[in-house]
Amino acid sequence: MAKYEVMHASEISEGSRQIVTVAGIEIGIFNVKGKFYAYRNLCPHEGGSACKGALTGHLAQGPETNWDLIWDREDEILYCPSHATDFDILTGESIARKLMRLQSYPVKVEDGKIKITLSELDS
């Protein structure tokens, strides 16, 4: 277990992300509505740089929208740049490819600084 201080929280504005390298591992840090999430920049599909993909929302339509077509989850859906696998930033799970997920790391903001915890298995 090792805690790494990566950057100041103010360096990642809401709805954006930064890629950092920690202990030789590329990690994407996302700010969704003031909450931070960290995922390995490695797509479980075929190894693409998932964290560099389009960070936006998705269309929703079904009984839950009364069959209206709406744009939903703005800034919460990450599309891998390789084949567009969709990851829910709040959970790290792909929505279309159920069971597929990005590797996540615990993130904390302490004294305005973002800190990520890596276990020994991560290195």
Binding site: Y79, H83, A84, A96, R97
Partner: peptide, 11 residues
């Protein structure tokens, strides 16, 4: 579907 769910096949 894996590529287009969120844009062309939301239903």
């Amino acid at each position: 579907y894996f590529e287009w769910r969120g844009r062309l096949l939301p239903f």
